[in-house]
């Protein structure tokens, strides 16, 4: 009892202090100072929320830039975040990538050379919002053709959307796919071939 009594008291005390007061205080301050970020950096287009700037979402069809393959649920499902967890010698990984390479070569006949390493590999979160600039440029001819835009314009758009390394040296340069696709859509609404499942939401 000499030890259990303080143990109980301290557990209760810290539950209140660090488990209730601390997170609620942080919540209050964050909602006050950074409401946009605290709520999930939501992105609006045409007056409605279409997603989060930080979470990738599925894009299909020739007229959109495609994100990386996602292992989260059926693809970009934030309720099932995670990677493929396939090891480097796993035949499933090799088969998946091989199929993706074939598909990519078919859809982007203009592209030559090694495929950017991020484009056909699944991210760790399954929600990666970014692709590398090279991965975007690799898709540019296809998108330009599908949208009827000049390649130069599309490449320019990619350049504008590219975020450099943070503080000049941190991380990698990247292109946020949602932002790029939204910018693209503002420039040139997609043709009928681009949205297989529903009306373009612009």
């Amino acid at each position: 009892m000499r030890y259990l009594s303080p143990a109980f008291r301290f557990v209760l005390l810290f539950t209140v202090l660090t488990g209730i007061i601390y997170p609620l205080a942080v919540t209050g301050l964050c909602q006050w100072w950074f409401p946009h970020q605290a709520e999930g950096s939501l992105v609006r287009a045409k007056g409605r929320i279409v997603g989060s700037a930080l979470l990738g979402q599925t894009f299909t069809g020739a007229a959109f830039f495609h994100p990386r393959p996602s292992a989260a649920g059926k693809g970009y499902d934030p309720m099932a975040s995670g990677g493929s967890n396939l090891g480097p010698t796993n035949p499933m990984l090799l088969a998946r990538v091989q199929a993706a390479v074939a598909r990519f070569r078919r859809d982007n006949p203009a592209f030559r050379g090694p495929i950017p390493s991020d484009l056909l590999t699944a991210s760790g979160s399954g929600l990666d919002p970014d692709i590398s600039p090279a991965a975007a440029y690799a898709q540019a001819p296809r998108v330009a053709q599908a949208r009827g835009l000049s390649l130069i314009l599309v490449r320019h758009l990619i350049g504008q959307t590219t975020q450099p390394r943070q503080l000049g040296f941190l991380g990698e340069p990247r292109v946020e796919v949602l932002r790029l696709n939204l910018a693209l859509a503002r420039l040139a609404p997609a043709g009928p071939a681009t949205a297989p499942r529903s009306r373009p939401a612009m």
């Binding site: 990677g83 390493s117 590999t121 991210s123 590398s132 991965a135 991380g171 990698e172």
Partner: peptide, 15 residues
Amino acid sequence: SQPGGNMEGKEVRFG
């Protein structure tokens, strides 16, 4: 403009 290497399971922003 791209990280190379083994990107399976890694995020683009971290490379």
